[in-house]
């Protein structure tokens, strides 16, 4: 058998092979994901009720309805949803990220039994969101729950009403979501830290850099790719949030904990306004698009370097 082979050139003639490999998966993807996405765009410009055969084209009035409801003294459901999604997003890209990074660094210090701690902190990530929702609904339950009976027995007369206080409720839900998220981020950073060359840190120490300086100027910049990913994941997860809210509060009280996905579900399936529901989903999509494009841009740059 020939061991020495002539250098292979990429074949000049048009090659159908890759398309044959792609045809199956790509067809499914286009039919089941991409086409439905565009169909939602179309629905968002109609007043369809989901049943009647005819859907009237009404231009952008669904969007006008949504955005027009904002800024009133009484917060509209859409405004609650939008603001809550943003609160969720901002929380997610800061606190769990910082905590995940902190834990990763702490557990990276040759800690004995670090595997056990990592597993413990990662555990919630494995549970499904309805399970997390049920557990936390119980944790917050004012009578039979975990927190408030403890606070009462510690002498606090009037503990916060986590899930029924309009100001507090969304934070209570986000807290539960963050509880699930931190382990995920920690694991990503733990993996990232493996690639940080310890010698760099030692050299920096020799040069008299203190811990904060070497973190600030060496570790953190080296972790930049991980951080990008972590932020993207956090953004996407925060925009997708539905399950926890649905299981824990159904968006209540009075919409105070609703998010765009829940609102969409209510509009479409409770109020029979498919068009408005689709418009809400499109708004959600537009927010994600900013991040999707940013991320694609980064990947594209990577690809070009090949």
């Amino acid at each position: 058998m020939a061991v020495t082979s002539p250098p292979i050139k990429t074949k000049p003639k048009f090659d159908f092979t890759p398309y044959l490999f792609l045809i199956g998966p790509l067809t499914l993807y286009l039919v089941w994901i991409i086409a439905p996405m565009f169909y939602s765009f179309y629905l968002s410009t109609t007043d369809w009720d989901g049943i009647s055969p005819d859907a009237k084209y009404i231009g952008l009035s669904n969007f006008e309805t949504l955005f027009g409801s904002m800024g009133k003294r009484r917060t509209s459901p859409f405004e609650y949803a939008l603001v809550n999604n943003l609160k969720w997003l901002l929380t997610f890209i800061t606190i769990p990220v910082a905590m995940g990074l902190g834990l990763a660094i702490v557990l990276n210090q040759n800690v004995k039994g670090d595997r056990f701690f990592k597993m413990g902190i990662f555990l919630p990530q494995v549970l499904s969101l309805p399970v997390i929702g049920l557990i936390w609904a119980w944790v917050y339950n004012p009578r039979d729950g975990f927190i408030n009976p403890l606070l009462t027995s510690l002498g606090l007369a009037d503990p916060p009403s986590w899930l029924s206080d309009k100001e507090l409720v969304i934070w209570a839900v986000i807290f539960a979501a963050a509880w699930r998220q931190i382990g995920y981020i920690m694991i990503l950073y733990v993996a990232g830290l493996k690639n940080v060359d310890i010698r760099l840190l030692e050299a920096a120490k020799l040069d008299g850099a203190n811990a904060w300086q070497s973190f600030r100027h060496i570790t953190f910049p080296l972790l930049a790719p991980v951080t990008t990913i972590v932020v993207v994941i956090s953004v996407i997860d925060s925009l997708r949030s539905f399950d926890l809210v649905w299981v824990m509060t159904k968006g209540g009280p009075a919409n105070a904990s609703t998010v765009l996905a829940v609102l969409m579900y209510i509009q479409a399936f409770n109020n029979y306004k498919m068009g408005l529901g689709a418009a809400t989903a499109v708004v959600l999509f537009m927010i994600s698009l900013v991040f999707i494009v940013g991320y694609l841009w980064r990947i594209m740059k990577d690809e070009m370097e090949y």
Binding site: R74, K166, G252, A254, N255, N270, N271
Partner: peptide
């Protein structure tokens, strides 16, 4: 209708959360 009921019940919940805010009531 379902939509009227949805909006209505949200109004009731808003009222319940702060029954003394008369401006809010007017908005509801």
């Amino acid at each position: 209708t379902p939509e009227m009921a949805d909006v209505g019940m949200n109004g009731l919940m808003d009222f319940w959360a702060d029954p003394y805010d008369e401006d809010l009531l007017d908005e509801i």
